[in-house]
Nucleic acid binder design. Structure first.
Lengths: 208, 208
DNA sequence: TTGTCAAGAAGGAACGTTCGCTTTAATCTT
DNA sequence: AAGATTAAAGCGAACGTTCCTTCTTGACAA
């Protein structure tokens, strides 16, 4: 093939990213060899190296995309929460959980419901040792916290949440719940979603 | 040296584990070479391979130990929570957070406050691709959930938590908060502890 | 001496990447 | 319209490096 359409180029790039994502999800970034990725994509080394400078660039691309998917889940849920009447917080969070889970099905070849959560864990692990990636995640989380901070402020203004705690701290706690959910989903079982939805409902209706 | 004391052998083993843990914390399990570990321990290949069969065994040992530390933090906090009067839940959770953070200082050469949380993330990532380790984690978490389940039941009996949600689901949510805290601490900043302690306080005192 | 420990060189496999070649689609020429 | 030309896409063997592990050798305690 030669001088092909942009659509073809885009499709190839996607094919490579999908294969790399499946490989990395299965074995993590650094226990996966380029040979694994090549086999999974069904392409040769020469082809893959035409689209990506090397393994590092492949890791960066897969990791960034996974994180963007998580971010999108958060933003969609925040924007989908109408100001009046204020919906129970655990309901809004459940939407984020659902969106994260739905990512499994969307991604080509991801029939395993634990696939996406496992990839996300690998991304966190990589971010712990890769400063540029960590900065990317930091920026994304800052953005999320800003958007969710405004939402939480509404709950405070409505008298549903105490005002002596900065909104951002509450947001970070809700963020933590989602992150923990991803871990439990990835490592343990499939009941994590219901557990956290119900658990949050119980906690937010506590009696002093 | 030859025919040395058991104390010497134990010390050597610990020296190797500590060096391996520092290396793995810095770069993850699979991006760390044995040469990195050897340099960090200050020992030669011959010495290390006398105490561990290979890299896999080293990973297993470091990962299991890190997980045991987290488990201990949970159990200590649960047992340290006296039944009467029931303390605010966010206080008990804060104890777990503190215990996890204290692990940094305890471990030799771990002056970096993010060291331990980062190692824990690597352990999760490894568990996602290593079934035996995942089973170990699963067993440990089951145990934690049992212990904390009883604690939560007390809160339910006292009328502080609604009884139409199984205790285990609430436990898993609290577990998720801690897990999320570890991630935030590892990747972002040092304010995670206060944020989650305060955030949980706000959520558990919500007004319908 | 004798038995054990540690060191460090060396082995062999596997790694990521490169490079020259072949194939193929798009374009040009007639 | 059809063949010739061109340039890019894809292939896969081979490269140099790095990996984990083993093995030989020397040194020290008993």
């Amino acid at each position: 093939m030669a001088r092909v359409s942009q659509a073809h180029l885009d499709a190839r790039r996607r094919q490579i990213l999908d294969g790399a994502r499946r490989s990395f999800t299965r074995n993590g970034f650094h226990a996966t060899s380029m040979q694994d990725v090549l086999t999974e994509t069904g392409l040769s080394a020469g082809a893959v190296y035409r689209y990506f400078r090397g393994k590092d660039e492949l890791i960066e691309a897969v990791a960034s995309e996974a994180f963007a998917d998580v971010s999108a889940a958060f933003e969609t849920a925040a924007h989908g929460a109408p100001l009046r009447p204020l919906r129970p917080l655990h309901e809004v969070l459940t939407e984020v959980l659902d969106a994260v889970l739905r990512k499994q099905a969307e991604k080509a070849g991801a029939t395993d419901p634990q696939a996406f959560p496992r990839l996300v864990i690998q991304v966190w692990g990589e971010a712990a040792r890769n400063e540029p990636l960590r900065r990317t995640l930091n920026d994304g989380y800052s953005r999320m916290r800003g958007i969710w901070g405004e939402l939480i402020e509404d709950y405070q203004k409505a008298g549903q949440l105490r005002t002596d705690v900065p909104p951002d701290r509450i947001v970070r706690t809700l963020l933590a719940v989602i992150q923990g959910f991803i871990i439990q989903r990835a490592l343990f079982d499939e009941g994590a979603g219901e557990a956290i939805s119900d658990g949050l409902r119980a906690l937010t209706t506590m009696q002093a």
